[in-house]
Design a protein around this nucleic acid. Structure first.
Length: 491
RNA sequence: CGGGGUGUAGCGCAGCCCGGUUAGCGCAUCUGGUUUGGGACCAGAGGGCCGCAGGUUCGAAUCCUGCCACCCCGACCA
């Protein structure tokens, strides 16, 4: 089986690329590093969006929209921020084209040079804080809890569908608060929202923690992240939440009068997840037969495939199938009845497996006769024949079961591939031979972190919130350390 | 951005080294028929600016130059 997919064990990254293309999620476009997200892939993104949007609103946030373009001068107001993003910015310098004088197509009109160049947003802190300046005068104007769904551009050297593209879709929350504590609470709240989304909806266990100074967001005082382990033993940063302190308020001069009448700078956070989550879902669950979508994010949760020898049988099956379909819809289960006659059932079975549809029902003459239906689950590929009576309830439970099972599977995989390591040689050999998460001591210096990265390509993914205090010696320098941190090679 | 590879029908590829009839194969597509419980079969048909732009030549998919895109390995990064 799976003769259309590269084997995962043979070539992991080719397997990933094949899967994205063959499951019809996305493809490369004519523009370097930019992808076309195809309807099936976009449908998954829409499910992700819908659930996250619900969670954001539940925690008091509202949506708004800010411009795609950021004047260059805004960008340079926060020093660390510009430093971090300068190398990957797309810049608009002109606003008009004209016919080439040699009659060969069109050229940029040099007369139409912009007074001030516009940066295509790689992230929106600066353009947003420029607005916040006008919105905030008093503590009564706070907090501001805004999220925006947008596209951003980061001119990446090397791109991969969903994991790293020059343009990507994301959401970015930008909040403003009266106190340090409130902003810190918000930063924590949102990393928790991301973590529970990852675990409950994406069925992927994640580790929450602080980023080391090196890995922090440009302009942040603290960055929290969730890190997931992929099947090839590499880590994927799945979401970040930043405590920005008063950096952007100071850069954009956003002050407010507090309850005591004193002027102070506003405290800020920002937080985001992107279409990269698609990559996490793929690499977290999929197998050699294709995608395995968590039922909660599957655009099609159940597919019904008719098996028939003639038109008569088909119409009989179709009547039954449409009836079942209604029962599913009544329970809020999304279902597709695939009665296309250009492919045989076996072809459809393989195709829906490739696309990761959690549950497949096959309905044939045998079933019509016996009042049964064949139920196949994508996660285990197990098949059973059950009574057609009460099928919707049965499948609903099965979907919950699949959601739970793939989470458990990913959880066990992560546990089996998380190592507590105290010797440098072991550290290197685990990274070389199997990958995975490594919990090891670190002396807390950026130099050591840098050196370890240089030698092993592993970085500190995060300092887990729940990493207990424990006396130890740095894995590389042997200097004293108070807690273990999470190392891994990463995407 | 450095090193390596690739680009020929919707997809996967052969042809290129050594220039020369009408550019070929498999899958897919269309038509007709037989089929349909794990990627069906037979017969026929359609589909090509040989990545793009220049150059060499009587003649270029094939040789040369430039550009574009993709893949792999580095540096950078969500």
């Amino acid at each position: 089986m799976a003769k259309f997919l590269t084997n995962r064990e043979e070539n992991y990254s080719q397997w990933y690329n094949d899967l994205v293309i063959k499951a019809d999620l996305a493809e490369n476009s004519a523009v370097r590093g930019c992808m076309v997200i195809k309807p099936y892939g976009y449908a998954i993104w829409e499910k992700i969006q819908a659930e996250l949007d619900r969670l954001f609103k539940e925690t008091g946030h509202v949506n708004a929209y800010f411009p795609l373009f950021i004047p260059k001068s805004f960008f340079s107001k926060e020093a660390a921020h510009v430093e971090g993003f300068a190398k990957e910015c797309a810049v608009v310098t002109h606003y008009r084209l004209k016919n080439d004088e040699n009659g060969k197509g069109i050229v940029v009109d040099p007369a139409a040079k912009l007074e001030e160049e516009l940066i295509i947003r790689p992230t929106s802190e600066t353009i947003i804080w420029n607005s916040y300046k006008n919105w905030i005068q008093s503590y009564r104007d706070l907090p501001i809890l805004i999220n925006q769904w947008a596209n951003v551009v980061r001119w990446e050297m090397r791109t991969r569908l969903f994991l790293r593209t020059a343009e990507f879709l994301w959401q970015e929350g930008h909040t403003a608060h009266a106190t340090r504590q409130e902003a810190m609470e918000e930063t924590e709240r949102m990393i928790n929202v991301y973590a529970s989304f990852a675990e409950n909806s994406m069925a992927l266990p994640v580790i929450k923690g602080y980023k080391s100074e090196n890995e922090r967001f440009a302009g942040a005082l603290d960055t929290f992240a969730i890190e997931a382990l992929m099947q090839d033993g590499k880590a994927l940063q799945a979401g970040t939440s930043h405590f920005l302190g008063q950096n952007f308020a100071k850069a954009f001069d956003v002050q407010f009068t507090d309850k005591t009448g004193k002027l102070d700078y506003v405290w800020a956070t920002s937080w985001g997840v992107s279409t990269r989550l698609m990559g996490a879902i793929i690499m977290g669950h999929a197998d050699n037969n294709g995608l395995i979508l968590p039922p909660k994010l599957a655009p099609i949760q159940v597919v019904i495939i008719p098996i028939y020898r003639n038109e008569e049988q088909l119409s009989e099956i179709s009547v039954k199938a449409e009836k079942i379909k209604k029962e599913f819809l009544a329970l809020g289960i999304s279902v597709k009845y695939d009665d296309r006659d250009n492919n045989k059932p076996g072809w459809k079975f393989a195709d829906y497996e490739l696309k990761g549809v959690p549950v497949r029902l096959a309905l044939g003459p045998r079933d019509i006769e016996n009042g049964t239906v064949e139920v196949a689950r994508r996660d285990t590929l197990a098949k059973e024949t059950v009574s057609i009576e009460g099928i919707a309830g049965h499948v609903k439970k099965l979907l919950d079961d699949i959601q739970e099972n793939i989470y458990r599977r990913a959880f066990e995989f992560r546990n089996e591939n998380t190592f507590r390591i105290d010797k440098w040689d072991d550290f290197v050999s685990v990274l070389e031979n199997q990958g995975g998460f490594i919990m090891a001591h670190w002396d807390g210096t950026a130099e050591t972190e840098e050196k370890i990265k240089e030698l092993t390509k592993a970085t500190i993914r995060c300092i887990p919130f729940d990493s207990p205090e424990e006396e130890g010696k740095c894995i590389y320098t042997g200097k004293p350390s108070k807690r273990r941190v999470l190392f891994a090679r990463s995407y």
